[in-house]
Nucleic acid binder design. Structure first.
Length: 460
DNA sequence: CAGCAGGGGGCGC
DNA sequence: CGCCCCCTGCTGT
């Protein structure tokens, strides 16, 4: 604090440290997160600001994705690496086993993480001597600088005015790899009330240009594309120009499966699903994510059909379950969560809350995602919500709710279900089979529940 | 009230 | 892990 001309300069001694700490804390609490990274089925709510600061790749991506809360699916990165990289970005440090180093570096290169894969621009004060590949577990610790700086940059930037890391050479903005423009735009038509439409973007994949939706030009151009295959799902803010915004529009593919498809085979049952679609139609996105994660097998399917445009609301759905719900469990009050939480009106959500919540035993208290926890017995905790179960299998099925995975396809229509049993119930619609007959009347039902419900009428 | 979809748990292999 | 059941929610008539 010096004074000159009567002006006092007040400095916050622990400003950097405090900011770094706050950032980490915010991430732990998933507070103010505005982007979700997904890899190997795990979701990491983080901050664009941090990602952008630490990676030009992300910076470019966000530059081209105006969505409020995009979901970036990273297909070729292991969750362990992702966690390590996030730790690196947020804390400036990461410990890695020597054996995992190569893989981590690879991941860092794909994502163009500064300080790890990309030389960090020498900050004002320090030279980047070890930048090239500064790490080894030991290095990391010893050289937190790169990151530190990074973080510093961003923090100081606000106060000093130096701006965030300028994206120097924008590699080709991979992010927008549009899917072929094909005909997805109709998707927009769906629900407006939702704040966003999901946007599904395939990030360029240098290696495998074959991606279904990649736009030709993008592919061609990107060599630098860091991420091999990733999907970026963005939530599009409704009403806003998001989608239409620059090129986005075109590349955005609205979940083709959307509407009818995911919900149930479009045509025949379409009539009953309209509203679902309108309200929020989580499926499409979910599936998209799943496919993205799991592999395109399914994706092609729906993309191919493309007939339904539903848009994606999956993100919404996702965010809801994933981000929103999780938080509550971990931190407490839902109210504090960020803006985009939806009203979980969806049958799904609500149901989940009720039933899922009941059984929860071990919840993350620290706000971090827990994969499994051991108490007296092993509790399998859903990473996306508060649901937990002692049965691994149960969790597997449950997770499909979040991922939208629907492995079972109806041979008679486009309907797909997440469980075989649900599918068998559905198939009866086509076969006309009604195995559950009422002993008091000729009534026959296709589902046991229907019969039970029917029996009630005899009681009254 | 019927029909349908979906989630979670129980049980057996 | 697969199969099945129970239960619930939503929608249409």
């Amino acid at each position: 604090m010096m004074a000159s001309d009567g002006m006092l300069s007040l400095s916050w001694n622990n400003h950097k440290a405090t900011f770094c700490h706050i950032l980490s804390t915010l991430r732990e609490k998933e507070r103010y997160t505005d982007v979700t990274l997904a890899c190997e089925g795990k979701f990491y709510p983080v901050h664009k600001l941090v990602l952008s600061t630490c990676s030009e790749y992300f910076e470019k991506m966000f530059e081209h994705t105006p969505c409020k809360h995009p979901v970036v699916v990273l297909k070729d990165i292991k969750c362990a690496d992702m966690e390590a990289l996030l730790s690196y970005m947020y804390d400036g440090v990461v410990s890695v086993l020597q054996q995992d180093l190569a893989r981590l570096i690879k991941a860092a290169e794909l994502l163009q993480i500064k300080g790890l894969a990309v030389p960090d621009e020498p900050p004002l004060k320090e030279l980047s001597k070890k930048n090239a590949y500064p790490w080894s577990s030991r290095d990391d610790r010893s050289s937190p600088h790169p990151k530190r700086r990074r973080r510093e940059d961003m923090m100081t930037s606000t106060s000093q005015g130096s701006s965030l890391p300028p994206p120097e050479s924008p590699p080709s903005s991979p992010q927008h790899h549009q899917e072929s423009n094909q005909s997805w735009d109709h998707s927009k038509s769906h629900s407006q009330d939702q704040r966003e439409d999901g946007v599904d973007q395939r990030v360029g994949d240098p290696v495998e240009p074959a991606v279904e939706f990649s736009s030709p030009k993008q592919e061609a151009s990107h060599n630098q594309e860091p991420v091999d295959e990733s999907l970026v799902k963005e939530e599009v803010i409704e009403g806003s120009e998001d989608n239409q915004g620059e090129g986005m529009d075109s590349r955005i593919e609205y979940g083709g499966m959307g509407g009818g498809d995911s919900n149930t085979g479009g045509e025949e049952q379409g009539s009953k699903f309209p509203h679902q679609l309108d309200t929020k139609h989580p499926q499409p996105l979910h599936e998209a994510v799943v496919e993205a994660l799991a592999g395109p097998s399914g994706m092609q399917g729906w993309l191919g059909t493309g007939e339904l445009g539903g848009g994606f609301s999956m993100l919404e759905g996702y965010s809801e379950d994933g981000n929103q719900e999780v938080h509550p469990a971990s931190t407490g009050p839902h109210g504090t969560q960020q803006s985009h939480q939806m009203v979980g009106l969806n049958g799904d959500g609500s149901r989940n809350m009720k039933r899922g919540a009941v059984g929860k035993v071990a919840l993350n208290k620290d706000g971090t995602r827990i994969r499994g926890r051991e108490a007296v017995v092993t509790i399998h905790q859903c990473p996306f919500c508060s649901y937990s179960t002692v049965r691994k299998h149960g969790l597997t099925k449950h997770i499909r709710r979040h991922t939208g995975e629907k492995p079972f396809t109806c041979p008679h229509c486009p309907y797909r279900s997440s469980t075989k049993y649900a599918m068998s119930n559905h198939v009866r619609i086509h076969t006309g089979e009604k195995p559950y007959s009422c002993t008091l009347c000729p009534y026959r039902g296709a589902q046991r529940a229907a019969l039970i419900n029917h029996l009630l009428t005899h009681k009254s």
